[in-house]
Computed example of a mutant assay.
Amino acid sequence: MAATVKICGLMMPQTIRSIAQLPIDHIGFIFAKSRRQVTPEQVGEMIRTYRGERPDGTPLMFGVFVNPSFEQLEMTLAEAPLDVVQLHGEETPEFCRKVKETLGVKVYKVFSVTEETGSSPREQLEIYLGSIDGILLDTAGGGTGKTFDWERIPDYLPVTREAGIPLIVAGGLHADNVAELLSRYRPDGVDISSGVETDGVKDVSKITTFVERVKACV
């Protein structure tokens, strides 16, 4: 089965109209401080635009947050009907569980992959199992446009496979390296933002090529 593909950091309804018919599985909107930050009202409009083009309920809509308050998530979801809350900060398992159970959304937790020694990947992940619906591995700092050491992926995969949750890889991906990632390490999905941009703006041609490369890897 082909990996899932997530296009993150969308900001404009016209981009959504241009990519609506591509086999994209996940769309990400950034609510954290970023040059790609959008408001709940903007995202609500973009989701309605996408649903008008794709009434089948796909792709899943992700909201990207860093250490949000529960109240911020409540207010955001009142304007933007997200399917998934993606948490990039120091959110605890208890917070993740509260979001998941109270707000009725899926929760994905992001783990930064570093060279530092410390707790093992299994120890990192196990305390979150049951509180989250998926994990995302990213380069430390996020949004750097750089890859992490992919040799670390096999340290995480057995835990997610046993738990039955997807593992998505982000960080420095583009059309020319994603096939290597997928063929060698077999994550469940990939997440891209800057790798499908030209001069900081989402490039429909690059998005199309990236999606085609991902879906060609089975």
Rank of each mutant, 00 (worst) to 15 (best):
A2P: 13
A3M: 06
A3P: 03
A3H: 01
K6V: 05
I16C: 01
I30E: 02
A32L: 00
Q37P: 10
V38L: 07
E45F: 11
M46R: 08
R48V: 12
R48Q: 15
G52P: 00
G52V: 00
T58M: 10
G63W: 11
V64N: 06
F65K: 02
V66G: 09
Q72T: 11
Q72P: 00
Q72K: 13
Q72E: 15
T76L: 05
L77V: 12
A78H: 13
V85L: 15
E90A: 10
P93Q: 04
K98Q: 15
Y108N: 10
K109H: 08
V110G: 05
T114E: 11
S120A: 04
S120C: 07
P121V: 03
R122P: 10
E123K: 08
L125R: 05
L125I: 14
I132R: 07
I135Y: 04
L136F: 02
L137I: 00
T139R: 06
T139N: 04
G141D: 00
G141P: 05
G141H: 02
G143Q: 03
T144R: 02
T147G: 06
D155Q: 15
D155E: 15
G164V: 06
G164Y: 07
V169G: 05
G171Q: 01
G171E: 03
G172V: 08
H174L: 05
V178Q: 00
S183T: 15
R186A: 14
D188R: 09
V190K: 09
E197G: 06
D199L: 14
V201E: 13
S205D: 15
K206I: 11
K206S: 14
